[in-house]
Simulated assay, not measured.
Amino acid sequence: MRNVTYKNVHNRFRLNGVYLSKEDLIHVSYSLVKEGDEFEKSIGDFLLDWFDDKPYIDLQTSGTTGVPKVLRTVKQTMVNSALATGDFFELKPGDKALYCLPTRFIAGKMMLVRSFILGLDIDFVAPTSNPLERNETVYDFAAMVPLQAKNSIPELRNVKKLIIGGAQMSKELEKSLLKINTKVYETYGMTETMTHIAAKKIGEKAFTVLPRIKISQNDQKCLVIDAPRVAKEPIVTNDIVEVLNEKQFIFLGRIDNVVNSGGIKMLPEQIEEKLSNAISEKFFVGGIPDDLLGEKLVLVVEGPERDIDESIFDVLDKYEKPKKIFFVDKFSETDNGKIKRKEILATLQ
């Protein structure tokens, strides 16, 4: 199995219950591109790119580690990522999997690669906000974004193992997922690392890295990922972390979200964690320009304006208390559910 290359299709692979060889997959891909719905066309396009003669494929990054760009990727690195995921989550040939992510994102592409490399029996459905609706199939493995998981909680009884990524999970969602029997993991990764390089069970603080990955920090306390099987050079992220040991780290916040107010540097994500039990709506904290402080910390809440009991700030340190509260009718978000903090904050100045 360790000699698997990007040209392989596992003999246990099934797509919507039907065995397909490499040649069959190419034929089906042409049909999807020609006759399928939009989400099916994107699946067909990716598979045709995958099974062409080139050893590489071009991926669009999300901008997690900088400006969005096209990343030319050796296909074998995606195979290596699939194998690492299979090891970490103990996936076996013949396991039943659900594919419900948009193929334009790396997470969606990797679910397809895992399926024919690891020999999964995968069903694909439209990447809707509730992909398990009217679906009683029992799945061994599935991947979703937080919004899909939130809308699928009653149906998740039929999923044995679920990974969630693409955007940070809210505390409210985490509490709901802890009540069900499904093994749920939050993942950490980006396009540059061929999706996740670490995962943690919900309810736990520390992420554990996948096999053959090393982690460290730079001078700014940002995570540095050394994953030679999926990236030629170490990847320096914008994520401030606490490294516990060579295999585990705790995510603290993004360096580009840091608020410097009067010389006091604060991580919004840490403040948000403290407030998560007191605010039921979507919210975030951030900094806006201030003549005296340079930046002042503000709380931004989604929805109509309302009174907020200031006692909720008692859990915060002296400098962490927001100087002002803003209400925004509807947050701008990326396609995979990340709040566009900078864009929203710019409208408040």
Rank of each mutant, 00 (worst) to 15 (best):
T61S: 12
T61E: 05
S62L: 08
G63E: 05
T64C: 05
T64V: 13
T65Q: 14
T65S: 15
G66T: 12
V67Y: 13
V67K: 15
V67T: 15
P68Q: 06
P68T: 10
P68F: 11
K69N: 11
K69L: 08
V70R: 13
V70N: 09
L71Q: 10
R72S: 11
R72V: 06
R72L: 00
R72N: 07
R72F: 01
T73C: 12
K75E: 01
Q76Y: 03
N80H: 06
S81T: 02
L83E: 02
A84C: 07
T85R: 03
G86P: 02
G86A: 00
G86I: 02
D87T: 10
F88Y: 14
K92I: 04
K92D: 03
K92S: 14
P93L: 08
P93T: 12
P93I: 10
G94N: 05
D95G: 04
D95Q: 05
A97L: 05
A97N: 04
A97I: 06
L98W: 10
Y99N: 15
C100Y: 13
C100I: 09
L101D: 04
L101P: 12
L101R: 09
P102F: 14
F105N: 05
F105T: 04
I106R: 09
A107I: 09
A107S: 14
A107Y: 08
A107M: 12
A107L: 08
G108V: 05
M110K: 04
M110A: 02
L112D: 01
L112G: 01
L112M: 12
V113Q: 00
V113W: 00
V113M: 04
V113T: 02
V113N: 03
R114T: 00
R114Y: 00
S115E: 04
S115I: 01
F116V: 01
F116Y: 13
F116H: 04
I117K: 07
I117W: 01
L118E: 01
